[in-house]
Computed example of a mutant assay.
Amino acid sequence: MANSVKVLISGESDDLVGRELLEQLGSVEVVEYDPNADRLSDEQRAAEILIPPYRGSHRPIPLLAQLAQLQMVQLLSAGADEWAGDVPASITLATARGAHAGPVSEWVLSAILAQLRQWPTLVRFQDQHTWAHRRYHADTLAGKRALIVGAGAIGTAVARRLEAFDASSTLVASKARPGMHGPDELPNLIPGHALVVITAPLTEATTKLIDSRFLGAMDDGALLVNVGRGKIVDTDALVSEVQSGRIRAALDVTDPEPLPAEHPLWECPGVIISPHSARTVPGTNSLCYQVAAEQISAFVKGATPTNLVSERRR
């Protein structure tokens, strides 16, 4: 590969830290671009590596057709579902897997504790200036069992955080391996877990994996937490279950997304929703670009990026 490789990087404020990191590599030429632009300049079109922006990463997809020299797309997300169907198989596609584990696992723990300790209910009582002693039912995380569907960096980080609260985890990976179950075992694993945490990527195999049968097999009073992708859960089936009050949910992702103002999920009892923002804390963009710089450095040296996306959704 050439000694100097052109890398397109967004000029938006969240992406400035990436420019600083990439310029330290010494083997790349960093070229800024506007993710909202319709046309690229001659210099930009000569780029061999494209990095979508930290926010709204799907925006530059229409620019792919203008990048005749493109050899790699380096994402800043943990998943690749937004891009996998548009990036030709001849072009290397890599993610920032691992960068989001800390912030997202922290969100999962906060959501679980908020639901178990009834913070949504307490805030509503506070809004009413009501001293609600013994008027609500809190629960403890200690002794709970969590079924974590998705045993990557985020899922394993969730398991470590839960262990600190004396909760145990059952991990389900895309393939069975020591200490982790395979997807074919999932139906028999659901009962007996008070918590079900979705951290899996969106693939053909995981689309609507959490359907009416899955939800129906969850224990009464169980909590579903989704930080994977909204389309992993059958929304209609979830609405039916939570409206009955049988289970609860904490969702950072939904289907559809953004969730329309009139959608019934907003009004469902026992549901808390955040706007796909589990990773959004100070410093996450820097973590993403650190991983991206490692992946790009490996690619430029002729090695295979560790976060290579091998399976593409079509």
Rank of each mutant, 00 (worst) to 15 (best):
D81W: 06
A138V: 14
I9Q: 14
A157S: 15
A278F: 05
T254M: 05
R312Q: 06
G56K: 07
W131M: 09
S174V: 00
T280H: 11
V87I: 14
A261F: 03
D219Y: 02
R279L: 05
I273A: 15
A292D: 09
R229P: 12
T284H: 11
K6W: 06
G11I: 04
P201S: 13
G18V: 06
L122S: 02
L238N: 12
Q128F: 01
A217Y: 00
L63E: 10
A84G: 00
D86C: 05
G102W: 00
H58G: 04
T140L: 09
G56Y: 02
N36A: 13
L22D: 15
L40M: 11
L63W: 09
P183G: 08
G98V: 04
V196M: 12
A78E: 06
G245A: 02
E311A: 10
Q128A: 13
V271N: 14
L308G: 07
V281N: 13
L209K: 11
S286Q: 15
S41Q: 08
L189K: 08
A132V: 04
L122K: 10
A68G: 07
H133V: 12
G192R: 06
F214N: 07
L141A: 05
I91Y: 11
D38S: 12
L202V: 07
S10Q: 05
L109T: 09
L147I: 08
A114S: 14
A173H: 09
H133A: 13
A293P: 02
R59A: 14
G230K: 07
G192I: 11
T199A: 15
I148E: 03
G155V: 03
L122F: 07
S168A: 13
S90L: 03
E20A: 00
E241V: 02
I112Q: 11
L76A: 09
T95D: 03
L308N: 05
E311N: 08
Y136Q: 02
D184I: 00
H100T: 03
T235L: 12
A293N: 01
A298C: 03
A200G: 11
P201E: 09
P60D: 11
T170R: 11
P305V: 10
V31S: 13
A298W: 00
V227K: 00
T95G: 07
G302H: 08
E241C: 06
D252M: 09
I49M: 08
A205H: 10
T121N: 04
P35V: 04
R248S: 15
L16C: 02
L75M: 01
L40T: 01
T306S: 04
P282C: 04
R161P: 02
A138P: 08
H263C: 10
A293G: 03
V197S: 07
D211M: 14
R59P: 07
D252A: 06
C268D: 08
G26P: 13
G143D: 10
E43A: 15
V87W: 02
S90Y: 01
E267W: 02
R161W: 01
Q290I: 13
G11Q: 11
D220Q: 11
I198D: 08
G221T: 03
L22E: 14
P53Y: 00
D38N: 09
L21V: 06
E204V: 02
A111S: 13
A151M: 03
L109I: 10
I273Q: 14
G216I: 06
L251E: 13
V197N: 00
